[in-house]
């Protein structure tokens, strides 16, 4: 059991980051903090993929006669794309927050929804 937990320590840490991200996302009413939570959530998934590709004792996947065991390069390549997507999402989110701040003069979700209901 202990071995199982220690053997998968990277996955436990990833789950922890993911949950911190999701919790921040749900519990904060500040829109910037929500976006920060969202970013953490996405980062955890990126780490998860990168962990998947690691092969114990494997080396960089460049074919050479000296090595026969290579790490899987595919997850890292996939995550390059996912990082780009994540950056785009966060950037768009911040742009929206700026415009919300201009329109409502607030970035607190509860204040904004109170203003929306008044209309």
């Amino acid at each position: 059991m202990i071995e199982y937990i220690i053997g998968h320590i990277n996955y436990w840490l990833i789950v922890a980051i993911m949950m911190v991200g999701l919790y921040t996302l749900m519990s904060r009413s500040n829109l910037i903090k929500k976006l920060a939570g969202l970013s953490m959530f996405q980062t955890a998934v990126i780490l998860f993929y990168v962990s998947l590709g690691k092969v114990t004792g494997g080396t960089v996947p460049i074919i050479s006669e000296k090595y026969s065991l290579y790490s899987n390069p595919l997850p890292q390549v996939l995550m390059l794309t996912a990082i780009v997507v994540g950056v785009a999402t966060t950037a768009l989110g911040f742009a929206l927050v700026i415009r919300i701040k201009e329109a409502y003069n607030s970035v607190e979700e509860n204040e904004i929804s109170a203003m929306d209901e008044k209309e």
Binding site: K34, R99, D116
Partner: peptide, 12 residues
């Protein structure tokens, strides 16, 4: 301006 909050919650 509600479009902004709608878009933001859709984004999240």
């Amino acid at each position: 301006r509600k479009a902004l909050t709608a878009a933001f919650s859709y984004l999240i």
